[in-house]
Design a binder for these strands. Structure first.
Length: 670
RNA sequence: GCCGCAAUAGCUCAGCUGGUAGAGCAACUGAUUUGUAAUCAGUAGGUCGGGGGUUCGAGUCCCUCUUGCGGCACCA
């Protein structure tokens, strides 16, 4: 190995992150480079980053390059650690249960998983045993080595080993791609890497979390595998912190808060539908009032359309064909029944029997809105027509999809359809984006992920129309200056769409808002208007929602704030709590005055200590506690204690109410 | 829908290898009139999710249905 500064004919120069350069007279591995820099680094080295890409420590650097050494402190280290943890999990499982097939096991955001195929189910009770075996493999410190195999050899190897999934996978790798095999001790797996140099480098800061089913290659038609999830960190302290974070996240779960705050419940006689309690419904109505105010401001008209609509309309709209399995249907027999016939003779039409009618609960509002649009003759002067509805929809969701109030079978969309000309798509989209961002901001969501979903492989409409629609939408989103990413091929079959995604407190992404361009439905349901030229034209429909559904959005909102809603949204904005019963009268007057001022306020006159009341109302997340004791009653004051703050402020009643009104002011007058 | 796990008092949970249910909080009653995150005492409350089976005996073991939870798939 050459010293820095020395040059030879075949020298390679490696530039380190600090700009320092090292020159070698022959290709070197990452490990050799680390050793050359220093023995401490050689020991800590886990991998290298070569021109930005993470590679094994054993990777040979054979040309001038920028290289850095990845150690545990590095951001990239976590992914390496987790990917190795997945492999070590797989080795442990195969050692414990020979005959189990390995398939696939990547690192994830907070950990890793590995999918196995085995007849007998794994259960969480096995975790301790598996973790012990994993620790054993770490202690063995097996060297991890990358090999490149011939494809046929690899297929033969995996078939011989009974690894049919692996064999299938290798067989389907694209031609020309290296068949990269990693071995650790006697165990090996097909994997692109990179990996740690040996199993002993895996910190003992991993934990298996859960076992779940997963389909091979994500397709329900394929066999189901058993997925074991785990988490892995740099050290036990990080692991502990992560587990603590999970506990904290659980505390803001909207299902738990919904019960604790007495907002709603769901019970088994109405699976997927919400029973809103008084406080929850107050929150709901506040959001609804706010939305109504925003829509009125934005020149929307509001409508209300039927829940039950004849199958015939759904057939015309195409929903019966595309959406049938998600629809609740009701069959009614309109012919008089035997015991009714006597009382109902006038309806007896004598046709004898088959008067069955099939109705469906609407899963969407759009066909109904077209019906309103079609009443009377529309002119180009009527466009754009923005038709909004807080539309109650029912969809038969698969049982496994249900989740609190975030994913239900009966929900209300803040739906609207903008009937416009093709030329208006751009401006309407832009206006909509602005409105949506404003509304999200009002609710405290600053970061919104926008996805542009363009034409799917199977679609309606010709390419020229798609070109125009996508271009109009793209221009609109670009003019807003908002960042967005592409979601290729994920558009609706009738048009491209923008998806607006919020991230909740537990890190889950929820798609709430949407904007979809639709050329198909106006055609199918024969919506038309008279243009400037006197001829009949088809309007374009923009389907759009901002909250998505009230149910889901309220769930997101509750989790986002961990129940501590901004005062304008809080179901109970203030609680008047007495210290002594002598203050009851004054407390009642305080409550009345606050209520007269438009505040949502309740009293707590119970014979309990103030400590008890403070605790209880704090846990109930009530933003303001108005404490009145003997002193306040005598002076005509109240003492305000705000949620989460120990400091108190005693004010004359008028001043206190004015202050609360200020805090409770909604973003737009409701 | 699929895989796994679970269901015991209003809530949170205990109940070991089968021997006819227990705690804390909440509720109710009484005492206490209290100054910023749980005052004290007492009382009541459960055909152990539904159905079936094994057993002398089932909360506990088996089957089945329902619902919930975590994933997968689906998705506002």
């Amino acid at each position: 190995m050459a010293l820095a500064g020395e040059t030879t004919a075949a020298a390679i120069t490696i530039t380190l992150p600090d700009g320092a350069q090292r020159t070698f007279d022959r290709p070197v591995t990452g490990a050799e480079l680390a050793a050359d820099i220093g023995p401490g680094l050689a020991k800590a080295a886990l991998a290298i980053r070569l021109e930005g890409a993470v590679k094994d420590l054993a990777h040979v650097i054979d040309a001038d390059a920028e290289v850095s050494i990845v150690t545990a402190r590095d951001a990239d280290a976590l992914e390496l650690i987790r990917h190795d943890a997945a492999h070590i999990l797989a080795e442990a499982v195969q050692e414990l249960w020979p005959g189990t097939q390995i398939t696939f096991g990547p690192a994830t955001e907070d950990g890793f998983y590995y999918d196995f195929h085995r007849k007998e189910p794994f259960s969480p009770e096995n975790f301790e045993q598996i973790e012990a075996k994993m620790a054993e493999i770490v202690d063995r410190n097996e060297t991890i080595t990358r090999h490149v195999w011939d494809r046929a050899d690899a297929v033969a190897h995996f078939e011989k080993a009974g690894e049919t999934f692996k064999a299938e996978w290798v067989g389907q790798l694209p031609d020309g791609e290296d068949i990269s095999i990693y071995s650790q001790g006697d165990w090996l797996d097909l994997c692109v890497g990179p990996h740690l140099p040996s199993t002993g480098k895996l910190p003992k800061a991993f934990k298996l979390m859960k076992v779940a089913g997963a389909y091979w290659r994500g397709d329900p038609k394929n066999p189901q595998l058993q997925r074991i999830y785990g988490t892995a960190w740099r050290d036990p302290k990080e692991l502990k912190a992560y587990l603590h974070r999970l506990e904290e996240a659980e505390k803001r779960d909207h299902r738990r808060l919904g019960r604790d705050m007495n907002l709603f419940h769901i019970q088994q006689e109405a699976v997927g539908s919400v029973f809103w309690h008084p406080h929850g419904w107050t929150l709901y109505r506040t959001v609804e009032r706010y939305m109504r105010a925003r829509l009125e401001n934005a020149d929307y008209v509001e409508v209300k359309t039927p829940q039950l609509i004849d199958r015939e309309l759904w057939e015309r709209s195409g929903h019966w064909e595309k959406f049938r399995e998600h629809m609740f249907v009701a069959e009614v027999d309109e012919s008089p029944s035997a015991d009714m016939a006597d009382h109902d003779v006038e309806h007896h039409d004598g046709t004898g029997g088959d008067n069955k009618k099939m109705l469906a609960l609407k899963p969407m509002n759009c066909p109904a809105h077209v019906q309103i649009f079609r009443q009377g003759i529309k002119s180009y002067r009527d466009l754009p027509l923005r038709m909004a509805e807080f539309g109650s929809c029912h969809r038969y969701e698969p049982s496994g999809a249900l989740h609190g109030i975030m994913r239900v079978r009966a929900f209300t969309q803040d739906d609207a359809h903008i009937f416009c000309t093709e030329d208006q798509i751009n401006s309407e989209s832009k206006i909509f984006c602005d409105l949506l961002i404003q509304i999200y901001k009002d609710f405290g969501f600053e970061d919104v992920l926008i996805k542009f979903a363009d034409r799917p492989p199977v679609r309606a409409g010709d390419d020229a129309t798609w070109d125009r629609a996508e271009e109009a939408l793209r221009q609109a989103i670009e003019e807003t200056g908002l960042p967005y990413e592409m979601n290729p091929g994920e558009g609706a079959f009738y048009g491209p769409k923008l998806e607006y995604v919020l991230r909740d407190a537990i890190g889950r992404d929820w798609q709430c808002g949407t904007l979809q361009v639709d050329f198909v439905l106006p055609e199918r349901l024969d919506a038309k208007y008279v243009g400037e030229d006197g001829a009949t034209h088809r309007p374009v429909m923009l389907h759009r929602a901002i909250l998505g559904s009230f149910e889901r959005f309220l769930g997101v909102l509750i989790e986002h704030y961990a129940g501590r809603l901004p005062m304008w949204l809080a179901p109970v904005q203030a609680m008047v709590a007495t210290i002594v019963s002598d203050a009851d009268d004054w407390a009642t007057q305080v409550k009345q005055a606050a209520a007269d001022a438009g505040l949502r306020v309740e009293t707590d006159l119970r014979n309990e200590k103030i400590n008890y009341k403070v605790r209880e109302h704090s846990l109930a997340k009530i933003p303001a506690l108005l404490v009145v004791g003997k002193r306040e009653a005598e002076e005509g004051t109240v003492t305000i204690r705000r949620l989460g703050q120990k400091e108190q402020e005693t004010l004359p009643l008028d001043a206190a109410i004015a202050a609360l009104q200020q805090n409770a002011k909604p973003p737009i007058s409701l």
